[in-house]
Design a protein around this nucleic acid. Sequence first.
DNA 1: CCCCCCCC
Length: 598
Amino acid sequence: MSYSLSEGAVEIIMSGGEYDGPVIQVLGHKKIQSRGEDRIRLIVSDGKHSHSLALLNSQLNNKVFSGELSNYSVIKVDKYFISSVQKKEEKRVMVILNLTIIAPGAEVGKKLGDPIQWSEDMTSPSYASTTKAEPKPVPTPMSNLSKTTAGINLNSSVLSSQMTHPIASLSPYQNKWVIKARVMNKTAIRTWSNAKGEGKLFSMDLCDESGEIRATAFKNECDKFYDMIQIDKVYYISRCQLKTANKQYTTLKNDYEMTFTADTVVSECMEESNSVPSIKYDFMPISDIADKGPDTILDVIGVCKSASDIQELTAKSTGKLLKKREATLVDSSGGAITLTLWGAEAEKFDGSSNPVVAVKGARLAEFNGSKSLSCLASTIVRVQPDVEEAHRLRGWYDNGGDSMAMVHISARVGQGGGNAEWMTFAEAEERRLGTGDKADYFSLLGVLTFTFADNAVYKACPQEQCNKKLVDQQNGLYRCEKCNREYPNYKYRLLLGATVSDPTGDQRVTAFNESAEVMLGRSAEEVGRLSDYDKAEYGQLLDHVKFKTFVFKFRTKIETYSDEAKLKTVVMSAQPVDYRDANARLVKSIKALSGVEV
DNA sequence: CCCCCCCC
């Protein structure tokens, strides 16, 4: 068995060129300490040259500890970057991010070829001309920086020709570095005032291939850099102060954070920087969120099916005036969830064109048994992001996904009724529910067996709290008798008559806006538009929801209309079935009925 | 040097 190594790759890579997926042999390894962390240094060979300054990304350490990556192994380096370390002089280091083991050491069993040790001064000009080599790094990266003025360097060529340092390598103990990083997120300018003084600041989240870090600019630096720093752009940044990050306040994966100082130099990277990754999302299908606990921090991507207007409220605890907007996101998992946006983010958000929205680091909140996502200050929200999942979702939504029935994870649960025992219609009748002076409430697992399509949606008063049906004045205006006013606009609201059945009987019920939206799987706005502009589709929608099963909570009370006493039953909430819960209830009643443990 | 991240 012979193994072919990428002869000459070490030389090309170490002299600044690019070599795609070099196949090299591991000749030895050594454990070193870096910032209190174990790092593995590999001695590698391409058959022609060996090189002892190959660092293994710490995530790969286990491959060595487990023996998987033993000496003489032949590996393909799938991903690497070149960094530099300062000892007595600048030294280039190859950091291996990803590798594939082509042949284990035991199988190879010997050193391949007769490699000689490579060193910096072996760099020959011939390689630079035959490869896509970048300009050779200047030996003293910081020497040029003093020539910049005001810290903002508009000509990136000075910095771009230099070697940059991986973010993961930054520490307070070393201040001669330049990073090449993408801005993932930038906060608004915030002011503070406390016993220690006052000021203003903004912060940004930066990332490169090696990791991420938060940087904050205070006062002067806040003014100086705020406009320049733009989300998604790549910058060369140097001369910041590093300090230990308070883990309490950050979700970024870095032990340190940076503070801009008067000496900080920032320069936009003008060339294509595909090597600097953009935000790394870890999207969770919306329907999976139902199983997650409160305070889970997660990423989602979905189409904004609807969004509320801005609501203003006063925080009880702080007395602060808050602005929020709720957007409903849906994805192809068939889940829907409410995302709450706050402050300026809420104000600028426009969901009217059903954009794809990507969210990184939102927090799962639970209120009255209903789950929703809430944005934190650190949450990144991107509207119409240029990522594959966004394009896929766009295609899905525009080609029928929009009419898919959704399980709304944030569906309201009747107050306090979440754990009420379920009843059947027969049991409700037996107990004469609704026949007393006060209304009775009960929950039931039932099937929607009929929907009354006539007048299921109406044009309601646009005022926040008034949901009165408007009178069409036939002149473009609508009159609200309750407000005694005419409006040019209106909001749609649902008032759905339906029949719910269970194995023991059925009941004519009425569902108002929120519960009807859950039952129809559409917003009142959408149903209204269909009713006015696409009667066929409207009819289909009302037809297709038949035989869907929900957990209903009813309010029932006997009422007399023209001498006839009838049970008036209102749907307080309709929830998609949580089958785990449903089965547990079933098992419980089987036990109770049979006296047998199951 | 901030560090609040909310409400029904």
